[in-house]
Computed example of a mutant assay.
Amino acid sequence: MNKKILDFAMVVAGNILIAFGVSVFILPYNILSGGLAGIGIALYPFIKIEPTMFVNFFTIALFLLGAALLGKTFAIKTMISSIVYPIALVLFQGKFHIQVDPLLAALYGGLLSGIGAGIAMRTGASTGGINVVTMILHKYSSLSLSTLVLILDAIAVGLGLFSMGIEAVLIGFIAVWAGSQAVDKVLLMGLQDAKAVQIISPKYQEISDAIHEKMVRGTTLLHAEGGYSHEERKVVLTVVSKNQYRELTRVVSEIDPSAFIVMSDTNEVQGLGFSYDFKV
């Protein structure tokens, strides 16, 4: 399928899913969720600006800001969101009547909204509103999209403390947390989980050869110096799949039981054996 058509379909699908979650779980139970709507509701007692006017004004302002800072492609895709979401919301509203506990409504409303937002964000688009700010901050900072979604939505929900009370805020935090987790999982979906492993041993060459022969994985020898002894030594760096980590530790311990092993998780690996066609 043509990538532009696929991106268009993903943006439409993501916004439809958000509209479904909001119409079925968020609005019927008055869940204090994040976004411009939540900020508008929370600030109304103080600024006396109708939430609808507040949302419309800042939706346009943030769209123009995003178009200026994030480019033409972003603007086109976000414009699709601005059209699809309100139409879908009107179509879904009042069509489904699901009686659940408000806590479950917050949880599932947040999950569905987060999944929808994540699907749209995978194309480089935004679902509009406060998510434009999320993507701008992501471009100019080291914070992940899911973390920024959590922070901004949590601030929006927290503002409701003065207008809707502590219980509504606590329930709203459930929706915000669920949404940020869903965004994170969707954005990471399809990436290669792996383990980056550093091995320190005087038998580094033997260990490196064993990784090549027994595990069919590449290695890199890093030059290092002991912090106490100041002796020069080599560190074996290798990246293995999640399922291979136990086998790696077994191979290393057979050669040098006292080898020092440092492992860290990584979510994305590109190269031979991971992103290319190569069978282990």
Score class of each variant (00 low, 15 high):
M1S: 06
M1Y: 07
K4D: 13
L6Y: 07
F8E: 09
F8Y: 11
V12H: 13
V12T: 12
V12Q: 11
A19T: 06
F25T: 07
Y29G: 03
N30E: 15
I31L: 02
I31W: 05
G38S: 09
G38C: 09
G38T: 10
G40V: 00
I41F: 07
A42V: 00
L43D: 04
K48Y: 12
P51Q: 03
T52P: 11
M53W: 12
M53Q: 12
V55G: 08
T59Q: 15
T59N: 15
L69G: 06
A75Y: 05
I76V: 12
M79F: 13
S82M: 15
V84R: 01
A88D: 10
A88S: 15
A88W: 09
L89E: 14
L91Q: 07
I98G: 12
L103G: 08
A106H: 04
A106L: 07
G109M: 01
L111E: 01
S113Y: 02
S113F: 10
S126I: 07
G129Q: 03
N131K: 03
N131L: 07
V132E: 06
V133I: 15
T134Q: 10
T134W: 09
I136V: 15
I136S: 13
K139L: 12
S142W: 07
L143W: 02
L150E: 11
I151Y: 13
S163Y: 02
I166D: 00
A168I: 02
G172S: 06
A178E: 02
A178L: 06
S180K: 05
A182V: 01
G190P: 09
L191Y: 08
Q192Y: 10
Q192I: 15
K195P: 08
I200C: 04
I200M: 13
I200P: 00
S201F: 08
S201A: 07
P202V: 13
P202M: 15
V216R: 15
T219A: 02
T220N: 11
T220Y: 08
L221W: 12
A224P: 12
E225H: 09
E225R: 05
G226V: 04
S229G: 02
H230K: 13
R233T: 14
V236E: 10
V239D: 06
K242Q: 05
Y245D: 04
L248C: 06
T249G: 01
S253I: 07
V262E: 06
N267E: 10
E268Y: 06
Q270I: 11
L272W: 11
S275D: 12
F278K: 11
